[in-house]
Design a protein around this nucleic acid. Structure first.
Lengths: 353, 353
DNA sequence: TTGTAGGCGTTATCAT
DNA sequence: ATGATAACGCCTACAA
């Protein structure tokens, strides 16, 4: 009775190639590596390449990493892949990393500090050469510590106060300006802001930008018209709007901190029989997918997420290539996407202005 | 003038720990590894652990992998992370892998065969211990080849004909049955199917299931009411519905191959001034996010994506632990989510039934 | 231009 | 129970 089991042949190594080509492993190594290939006789090189090809040789990146102390990997720290904000960023990152021979380890933190620590730790132990961090906390001892330890990193969608770290963000200031100007152009004078968590850098930036825009355009400056949401979520958005409405505040339009908060408003409209945009206009932020299919299609500020990702990856690769290079930060311009959730204020409301 | 540059100390190695603890590196290794710790004197072990702790020793996974030929990583092959279908699957996978000490490399293929080949190749060269494959082609020489080579893998959301591979899928048959029964219950007799690409296993399964369900319920069996979409996309869904409408076919409801195809129908309704569900009912498939916010909120078949991911990861870990274990396949039950895109057929239409 | 030798950090095997 | 030794696959001074 013969053995039927499939015999898994060990993957060919450099030695196998060298043996087949009749040269020393060192020579084979040089021939296979484009950077050192010029050191070896062209004929020899050809012979080695052919030998490698013929047995399907693939260099073992583990062994190479052990020797060179480089892994060609970077860590990608995001809050939650299920948030539609992040996949385009991830794609942007990967599309830059891949041609450069790098790959990304993705970890989710669920916005949990402890989880973030352990995940980053696991990335470090995997010897990533750098970190792209897209979690949103405004200040975080972890980042300061990593920075002190000389970990190369790039921030995405956030800045950290007091730390000179490269970052790629949308120009939130300009984006909010666009949103407010759009509403003002429609005739709105009393506009509310459902701000994102003020523990996040984007939450703070957008809230400040809102105040500036209101002032610049000479609209109603009323602190009562600014409410903070505890999370960037629909439920929090709904909650905030309910509170605002119940407080008896007088406003005809809402600039939401992001699209999810804006969609939360839709729930309140449904509850209270309000019509959007007739009774209330709403602008979101981010341009997440399928907004055009919503009821009503949501007017929003579009942020180039894919580009944010690709720029971040480029920044990180630059830092890896030249650690001395000073930290740059990049800000990308958003644009306005006008849909059906915004319109002129109702006559009865506009009258107050 | 003193040097200001931060001196990056080399990470402590096993030798450092051993030296500090006054033992041989081999002993330190045994003490540090829970599996071999019983081999060493309890006191010695404590000493080693303390030493490791004190200098912040982290084992180098690269070196370990080189020695053990195990990487504790698996490859995750998906078409496109941007498709909202996949992030929950990925989370399900990661939430099982992480506690087991494994991590996943994610690659996108964009449904491109060549890209899939190179991506899988890159995963293999990174020495992943197994593959979870969520790309949708029904037959693919690549998979057969990988299987022959003994690569451990689990299929997600698909089966491959003639190959005995473990897989985790939703019970598409049952799901489509649910959808058709729901429409039949509302009084629809002439139901169309906008099928997904018949090059994908889900596309085929759902189309067949549709035919069976129609027959079982004694509804109108009309080949003209089945149309194939070239992709699982909104535009293809819109295209298919337009063609169907233009052909003069008589139907009051649509079972779409997936949610995107269903949403494509919405575009056609808007174009032609049709009202959903009054003029036409639509059911989607998958329960992608934010369907409740659509106009109208989409009735759909909900598939437990997260669970699909976690089951797939479990299957793969099982295979890795025991390669001899026969391939199991798992089918998860879908459920109906009734929203506002389905209703009774209009009286004028229902009359034909 | 090519070969030699040593080592990256860890673990498996053998010997003590 | 611990130590010595070698090896995983690759790269790179250095020597020839």
């Amino acid at each position: 009775m013969t053995a039927h089991k499939i015999v898994r042949m060990a993957a060919p190594t450099l030695r196998d190639v060298a043996q087949l080509a009749g040269v020393h492993p060192a020579t084979a190594s040089r021939a296979l590596n484009p950077a050192t290939r010029p050191l070896v006789n062209a004929d020899t090189a050809r012979k080695v390449l052919r030998a490698a090809e013929s047995i399907g040789y693939q260099p073992n990146p583990i062994a190479r990493s052990l020797k060179t102390a480089r892994t060609s990997t970077v860590g990608l720290v995001i809050p939650d892949l299920t948030n539609p904000l992040f996949p385009p960023i991830v794609r942007g990152i990967e599309d830059v990393l891949t041609p450069a021979g790098y790959s990304a380890w993705i970890v989710n933190t669920d916005n949990d500090l402890a989880r973030e620590e352990t995940q980053v730790e696991s990335l470090r132990s995997r010897q990533v050469e750098g970190l792209i961090i897209a979690t949103a906390r405004r200040e975080h001892p972890l980042l300061a510590r990593l920075h002190r330890q000389g970990i190369k990193m790039v921030l995405v969608n956030r800045r950290v106060e007091g730390l000179d770290l490269p970052s790629v963000t949308a120009d939130d200031d300009a984006g909010i300006g666009l949103a407010v100007a759009h509403l003002a152009g429609l005739g709105h004078r009393r506009i509310a802001h459902l701000a994102g968590p003020q523990t996040t850098s984007t939450g703070v930036t957008r809230a400040r930008a809102f105040q500036h825009a209101i002032r610049d355009l000479g609209l109603a400056e009323d602190p009562a018209l600014m409410v903070e949401c505890g999370y960037w979520s629909e439920t929090e958005g709904a909650l905030a709007l309910r509170n605002l409405l119940d407080s008896g505040a007088d406003f005809t339009a809402v600039v939401a901190g992001n699209d999810l908060i804006a969609l939360g408003c839709y729930d309140v409209f449904a509850e209270r029989g309000m019509s959007c945009p007739d009774d209330m206009s709403v602008v979101g932020f981010n341009e997440m997918p399928f907004l055009d299919k919503m009821n009503p299609p949501l007017t929003t500020v579009s942020v180039p997420h894919y580009d944010i990702g690709s720029e971040a990856a480029r920044l990180l690769l630059d830092t890896i290539d030249d650690p001395e290079r000073p930290a740059r930060s990049i800000m990308l311009a958003p644009s306005m996407v006008v849909r059906a959730s915004t319109g002129p204020p109702a006559a009865s409301q506009g009258a107050t202005a």
